[in-house]
């Protein structure tokens, strides 16, 4: 088992997904079986191979520094589960 319950708890926290204590064991098993399976990549010698950076060879185009913009406040906040006079709102964040 490459991944134990504490690891699952940790990565679930990093991913901001609540998992119950009961789910930890089965999840650890699932994730481990997949990670064990990908271990086979170790067979391949990739010593001098460069990791792929762009899928098809092309240069990245750049945008001109032009503002194409009307007030999007409504469009941007329209789908918000909650909002208050143009602000998104969340449970208070304590610094």
């Amino acid at each position: 088992m490459s991944v134990d319950e504490n690891t699952v708890r940790h990565i679930a926290r990093l991913a901001r997904i609540a998992v119950t204590e009961e789910e930890l064991a089965p999840l650890a098993k699932e994730v481990s079986s997949i990670l064990d399976w990908v271990e086979q990549l170790g067979e391949v010698n990739t010593g001098h191979v460069a990791p792929m950076t762009s899928v098809v060879e092309m240069e990245m185009k750049m945008r001109e520094d032009i503002v194409t913009h009307e007030d999007l406040q409504d469009q941007v906040t329209r789908n918000a589960p909650v909002s208050e006079d143009g602000f998104f709102t969340v449970p208070k964040v304590v610094e």
Binding site: V38, L41, G42, V44, T46, V49, A50, P51, M52, T53
Partner: peptide, 11 residues
């Protein structure tokens, strides 16, 4: 994992 996989992709 990630870098290894991207190298396999190159291959």
């Amino acid at each position: 994992y990630y870098i290894k996989a991207q190298k396999i992709r190159t291959l």
